[in-house]
């Protein structure tokens, strides 16, 4: 891949990635956001659109981070950050919270990932089969349980390898789970045909995108 082949394109920033995902979440959905960039999505839900955010540690109806002098020391999210509750919010214990996840009640979960394959496989919890003490947390529950799984991640690794692959080389979090991917270069649906490109960063051509993507890309039918 030659960098010079791509004269000028502007990758989406992380806030732009979050904003693009947020714009696609309709009113009324119950949504769980994974740790990292996905957490930013809640900041970009359009004003007046009611979306209810869930956190694994028994928090439903979560609001934004508190102002410094209004921190509630007993109110954290799964990322162990202080959060607030919206009017209408509720607490439950961990088994009920994961019943919301595993029982198929969440409309959407958005996770980060190391790799996504064009059959929807996701790898996001361990970078090696021999990882000594990997930390899975709630990722497998979310990937297997939510009605739909989106991934928000950089298109390539720091050394330029594609994170969109034909087969995940890292240990799977769940097979065939991912429905859509938002990267810094494109928005991509995972379909029966494989990866279908819905949109690209300004100035990027499909050829440019394909050059940065291991798996075959398709255009919408």
């Amino acid at each position: 891949m030659s960098e010079t082949a791509v004269a000028s394109f502007k990758p989406f920033t992380r806030p732009q990635m979050a904003q693009r995902a947020a714009a696609d979440i309709p009113e009324g959905w119950y949504v769980n956001l994974g740790i990292g960039i996905p957490t930013m999505i809640s900041d970009y839900v359009p004003a007046g659109r009611e979306v209810i955010f869930h956190s694994e540690n028994g928090v439903l109806g979560m609001g934004p981070a508190p102002e410094k002098d209004k921190i509630e020391p007993w109110l954290i999210n799964a990322g162990k950050q202080y959060v607030t509750m919206l009017p209408g919010g509720s607490f439950c214990h961990h088994a009920d919270s994961f019943s919301m996840i595993r029982g198929g009640h969440l409309d959407l979960c958005v996770l980060g990932a190391f790799q996504v394959a064009d059959n929807g496989d996701i790898a996001n919890w361990a970078t090696s089969e021999n990882d000594t003490a990997p930390a899975v947390g709630g990722a497998m529950d979310l990937a297997a349980g939510a009605k739909r799984l989106w991934v928000l991640m950089e298109h390539t690794t720091k050394d330029g390898s594609s994170k969109l692959v034909t087969k995940c080389s890292y240990p799977l979090t769940a097979p065939g789970a991912v429905k859509r991917i938002y990267t810094n270069l494109a928005t991509i649906d995972v379909t029966d045909r494989g990866f279908v490109v819905l949109g690209m960063a300004p100035g990027l051509s499909l050829e440019d995108l394909q050059a940065r993507t291991d798996a075959k890309l398709h255009l919408p039918a």
Partner: peptide, 15 residues
């Protein structure tokens, strides 16, 4: 020794 358990499975095993 370490036994890694998905968080929801851990909660459900207790319930």
């Amino acid at each position: 020794e370490l036994e890694i358990v998905p968080q929801g499975t851990l909660a459900e095993r207790m319930r």
